[in-house]
Design a protein around this nucleic acid. Structure first.
Lengths: 349, 349
DNA sequence: CTCTGGCACTCCACCGCTGAGAGTGCTAAT
DNA sequence: ATTAGCACTCTCAGCGGTGGAGTGCCAGAG
């Protein structure tokens, strides 16, 4: 991806880091003078200027106009992030906040996830998203069809991870008295211990084991099991702190603010963006134009997967300006994701 | 509320309406000249100026500075809205869109409500909120306790309106083999046909009817029934089109945009704002400073309750700038709320 | 060869000024 | 009551000048 795979000289790397740090802190283009003054470079501004020219040629920094200081490019941030020491630790106060948050027991999963998003947002001052864990591999522990008025029934499945799936099923016209109960009990037998994602297939394949006249009803139930996949992806994420976007893109144009907020509302897009976090594992960072979504070209996205043990269950992340404190943000995302994984483990998920 | 309860003369009312219409359309302060040119007032600009001075004294319009045109005040919009002919109809195209939307059957309530919010947002170009129907008065049709790993159980209640409540219950240490089943069946007997909101009380009062050693478990289940009330209010609303806020507050300061978006994220606040829509019924309009929330002083909020037959089940509404097309917005909110009510009736809710 | 001091240059941001334009309020006449 | 006319006020856009920050380059020192 970076056109220059060469490593920078130590001094250039030092200067680049200083530029990134200072620009992130102040938001102002950084000149050679403040660099020597504030970062004890031990050389003169003229030397720094030469190095900066080289960094600009290499594409790591740029000038908004002649005779302004330099601003990191996406590639500059990328270098900064890649060369960052691994063990970046959060300030004690924030680490403490995270620990405090997760010691309280939280039984309601949805609410817990929402609050986790709020925590992440308030730690980083960026918009935060938490995707709910994919529990498709959870095993079904209980299935039931409950009759409702109006020729409908409610299909309910409970998994060992404490997830409850429920879907309305339109019943066929000719359902007999005890048929619903028979279908309900039949399905319970078929599906006990089956993974949620295999439920539809299992019902279809093995419906022959049950009385033949229940066939139509079972097919409808199987269809209901299929539907959640799509709805779930739509439904189950929690976005908090979107208003931060407005602050962050501060002086720039309103139009880009609108685009970003609009993109955050766009479920499918957000899902796509966070999808790789899920597959990659660990913390991943997308800077500016590295981003697949054109609307987010001005943003950086820091994501992580969370899970219990080896398997990733879900992902979370933040969306902020490319000009962000990557060290702290990455540390916060990492820390929250690992605590969330532990919490879910504690819930038996 | 309005300091002047006097009705305006016909001509002043006409001019005020013209000012509101024109300002809503253009966003520019309105001068006397365009008024006579565009609205066939049949009098000279000078006369209009005199009338405008009177309207300004009465507090219906103001000048952003000397020698600018006039802009409606909140009171001006209020007058405009109050004197608006009742039977405002939507343009045929939009009415058609709404009808089209609601002819498709939608079984998944949550998704239907979310899409309704999206519809309302796209009809009005404002941020739209739909609160889920309060189904506390729905009658319980089915109750069950399902054992989970880790000494927990899932309490599930299904109502005749197709709502499924589920809560994790920590079981007492000393639960015997068949106790869970016994408690489950006992509760099913106690609660069949009881309103969801009365479930906790009913279990507590009548737990004596069941074997004494089930007491602790039943108490925990009752607690679980109590909890949803608070969580529910938090959870169950759908916000779409928040990015419109950015456009709307267009040239004005970013800080107020941030405040509004932040307020929209604040569940409790939003709930409060929409609470009166619920009690009032019909369409209600809050203009600018009429708004209880200080963060929304620059916004107008148009809300309506929806329900089946006489009883209100929930509320919905939009948040936009005070400078909005009240006629169309009110008509859209009204139309969507009434269709939503019918749809819920169709679902048997 | 590397570094540095010096210097000329460029460009932005700020300031004050000005003229055009829009819209008003007032007054006197109808 | 209405209106034409007029002086007034205020904003906005454009303009030129100035100061300052930061640069690139060059020549000389180490």
């Amino acid at each position: 991806m970076p056109p220059e795979t060469e490593r920078l000289t130590d001094r250039r790397a030092l200067i680049l880091r200083a530029i990134v740090s200072h620009y992130v802190g102040t938001g102002e283009p950084v000149g050679s003078k403040v660099l020597v003054e504030r970062y004890r470079l031990g050389v003169s501004p003229a030397t720094v200027r030469n190095e900066m020219a080289a960094l600009e040629d290499a594409g790591y920094i740029y000038q908004p106009h002649t005779s302004a200081g330099r601003i990191p490019t996406d590639a500059g941030y990328r270098y900064f992030v890649d060369e960052m020491p691994e063990g970046a630790r959060l300030p004690a106060a924030e680490a403490h906040r995270i620990r405090q948050f997760f010691v309280e027991p939280r039984w309601e999963l949805e609410e817990a996830l929402r609050q986790t998003a709020a925590l992440l947002s308030s730690l980083t001052n960026h918009a935060a998203v938490v995707f709910a864990p994919a529990l498709d591999r959870s095993l079904i522990r209980h299935v039931e069809l409950v009759e409702l008025p109006g020729g409908r029934a409610m299909l309910i499945a409970v998994t060992d991870t404490g997830r409850v799936e429920n879907h309305v099923v339109m019943l066929p016209e000719d359902v007999g008295e005890g048929d619903l109960l028979a279908a309900s009990e039949g399905m319970a037998t078929l599906l006990n211990g089956v993974a949620l994602e295999d439920a539809a297939v299992t019902v279809r394949e093995r419906s022959g084991d049950l009385p033949h006249h229940l066939g139509p009803m079972l097919r409808l139930a199987a269809d209901a099991f299929d539907s959640p996949a799509e709805v779930k992806a739509h439904e189950r994420f929690f976005l908090e702190g979107a208003s931060n976007i407005v602050d962050e893109t501060k002086f720039s144009d309103l139009e880009s603010v609108r685009k970003v907020i609009s993109a955050l509302e766009h479920r499918r897009l957000l899902l796509e963006v966070l999808a790789d976090a899920f597959s990659l594992g660990g913390v991943s960072v997308r800077i500016g134009a590295e981003n697949p979504a054109t609307e987010m070209r001005l943003c950086s996205i820091v994501t992580a997967s969370y899970g219990t043990g080896e398997s990733a269950l879900g992902s979370l992340g933040i969306v902020g300006p490319t000009r962000m404190d990557y060290r702290r943000t990455i540390a916060a995302v990492h820390e929250v994701s690992s605590h969330l994984g532990q919490m879910l483990a504690g819930l038996g998920i």
